[in-house]
Design a binder for these strands. Structure first.
Lengths: 182, 182
DNA sequence: CACAATGTAAAGCGATCGTTGTACATGACA
DNA sequence: TGTCATGTACAACGATCGCTTTACATTGTG
C-alpha cells in the first residue's frame, strides 16, 4: 500500500503515453487514483514528481542490466537487455533524454539529473568493455555507448532490428580492438 | 519580406529554447513579431506551424550535407557536418525526434513526417556508404546511421567530442567491411 | 480610383494548467 | 479514548493555453 510508489509508477505510464509537459496533473494521477493533495504532500510539485519518476526509471534499468550480466559476452548483453526493455516498454526514445529536452529551458535540476544518469551509464558501459577486452579502452567505451543511444533513438522511427545492428557493430569494434592489442 | 519564412525561422528558435508544447503561441511569435492572425492565415494551427518548422529544418540539414559532400571520404564528412551543425545550433538532441516524442500521443501527422524524414536520411547514409565501399551494404549503412543518431543524442549530455568518437567508429566499420570483401 | 492581398493591434473565447484550501475518513498507536 | 499521520473528495485560485474575432493600416496592381 505504498501510495508514493503507486503515483510514481502511474505517472511514468502517463508520461510515456503523452509527454511530460503534455500530461496534466489529472492524467498523471488517473492511473494511481491518488488525489492532487497527496501528490503535493509527497513531491511538492510536478517537477518533483518528474525527478522521482526519472530516478526510479534509471534505477530499474540499471537493475535489469545487472541481472542480465551473467553471460559470457558482457557487451552483447547490453543490447539484448535493451531489446527486451524496448519490447516491454515500447520504443518512444529514451525517457531520460526526452525529459531533458522538454525541461531544458525550464528546470536546471532535471537537466542535471539526466546528465549525471547518462554519465553513470557510460561508466557502466566502460566497465563492460574492460571486462570483454581485458583492459581499459575509453574511446571504445564511448563508441559502444553511442551505438546504444543511437539504437534507442532509432527504434522510435524504425523497427527493433536496429538493436541487433548496433549489437553487431559493437562486436566488430570490440574484435578490432582485440586485434590491435596483439 | 517573406513573413511566412520569418515566422518559421523565429518559431524554430522558440521551439529550441523551450520545447514544442512548452512554447506558447506568444513565445513562438515573439521573434518574428508577427500577429496571431497572420500565423493562422498561413498555417491554420500550431500543429501546422510545427510541421512547417520540421520540414524546413530537415531541408536545411540535407542542403548542408550536400554542400559538404565534396571531400574524398563521404562517410566521415557526415560527422564533420554534424559537428559543425551542433556547434552552430547547440546540442539539444535531434529536433525531429523531440517533436516526435512530444506529439507521439497527440499528432499522427507529425509522427509520420518524422518517420519519413528519418527514413530518407538513412537512405542518404546508405548512398554514402555505397560510395565509400564500392558496393551496397545495408546493414553497415544502418550501423553508421545509429552512430550518427547516437552522437546527436549523446552530445546533449556530454561534450561534442562524442561526434569524433562516432566518426572514428564509422571509419573502423567501413575499413572492416572493405577487408571482408577481399 | 477601386480592389484584393497581406499585414498589425487588441480583446476575448472556453478550456486547461499547476497549485492550494477546506473538510472529512481511516487506521495505528499511545 | 485521544491524537497523529495519511489518505480522500471537491471547489477554486490566477495564469496561461490554443484559437477566433473585429477593426484598421499598408501596399501593389488593374
Amino acid at each position: 500500500m505504498d501510495k508514493r510508489a503507486d503515483i510514481v509508477s502511474g505517472a511514468a505510464s502517463a508520461f510515456e503515453a503523452d509527454c511530460f509537459r503534455g500530461a496534466g496533473i489529472d492524467k498523471v494521477l488517473a492511473p494511481s487514483g491518488a488525489s492532487t493533495r497527496t501528490l503535493y504532500k509527497h513531491f511538492g510539485s510536478k517537477e518533483g514528481l518528474v525527478l522521482a519518476v526519472l530516478e526510479e526509471r534509471h534505477r530499474r534499468f540499471e537493475e535489469r542490466l545487472e541481472a542480465a550480466a551473467k553471460g559470457a559476452d558482457a557487451v552483447a548483453a547490453l543490447f539484448d537487455t535493451l531489446r527486451q526493455w524496448l519490447e516491454e516498454h515500447g520504443a518512444r526514445g529514451c525517457m531520460l533524454l526526452r525529459a531533458r529536452a522538454e525541461y531544458s529551458g525550464a528546470s536546471e535540476e532535471i537537466v542535471d539529473l539526466v546528465r549525471r544518469q547518462k554519465s553513470a551509464f557510460r561508466r557502466r558501459v566502460a566497465a563492460r568493455v574492460e571486462a570483454a577486452l581485458g583492459r581499459e579502452d575509453d574511446s571504445l567505451a564511448t563508441q559502444i555507448w553511442l551505438l546504444f543511444e543511437g539504437a534507442t533513438a532509432a527504434a522510435s522511427v524504425a523497427d527493433l532490428s536496429v538493436v541487433n545492428a548496433a549489437k553487431a557493430a559493437a562486436a566488430s569494434l570490440v574484435e578490432e580492438a582485440k586485434r590491435n592489442a596483439c
